[in-house]
Simulated scan of single mutants.
Amino acid sequence: AVVARMNLQYKVPLQCDDEFFSRLWLEKQGVRYVFHQDIFRAKDEKLCLKATVELVCLINGKLGNSEDYDKAFEKYFSSQG
C-alpha cells in the first residue's frame, strides 16, 4: 500500500508538557483505506489536530483491492466520518 493523500488540519497548539489523547478510526471508500485521526489536548479536550490519510494498493502497478488488507482491517472499518 502507498499513501495517496494526506490532509492535516492544525487547530490548537500543544505545548511541551501537554498531555494528549488520540482517536483513530478507519473506513474503506472504494479502493481507498481512509484513516481518520483526531488529537485532543487532555486538560480541556480541545481538538488540536484533525488528520486524514488515504492509502491505496497497487497490484502489478495498478490500483486494486487487496483481500489481505481487507481482511486485516475488517474489524476496524467504521462508517463514522
Results as ranks from 00 to 15, higher is better:
R5A: 09
M6V: 14
M6T: 12
M6K: 06
N7V: 14
Y10L: 14
Y10F: 14
Y10M: 11
Y10T: 05
K11S: 02
K11T: 03
V12G: 02
V12I: 11
P13Y: 10
L14E: 14
C16V: 15
E19S: 05
F20R: 09
F21R: 07
R23E: 11
L24Y: 00
L24K: 05
W25D: 09
L26C: 06
Q29H: 06
G30D: 15
G30N: 13
R32K: 09
R32L: 10
Y33N: 12
H36N: 12
Q37F: 00
Q37E: 13
D38M: 04
D38R: 03
D38C: 08
I39K: 09
F40E: 08
A42Y: 06
K43M: 05
K43T: 14
K46P: 04
C48F: 00
C48E: 08
L49N: 11
L49H: 09
L49Y: 08
A51D: 14
A51R: 14
A51Y: 05
T52K: 11
V56Y: 11
C57F: 04
L58V: 07
I59D: 02
N60A: 08
N60W: 03
G61W: 10
K62R: 11
K62A: 13
K62S: 13
K62D: 13
L63R: 12
L63C: 01
G64P: 03
N65S: 07
S66K: 00
E67Y: 00
D68A: 05
D68G: 00
D68F: 03
Y69V: 07
Y69T: 02
Y69K: 00
D70R: 04
K71T: 15
A72F: 01
A72V: 04
F73H: 07
F73M: 12
E74P: 01
Y76G: 02
F77E: 10
S78Q: 06
S78N: 10
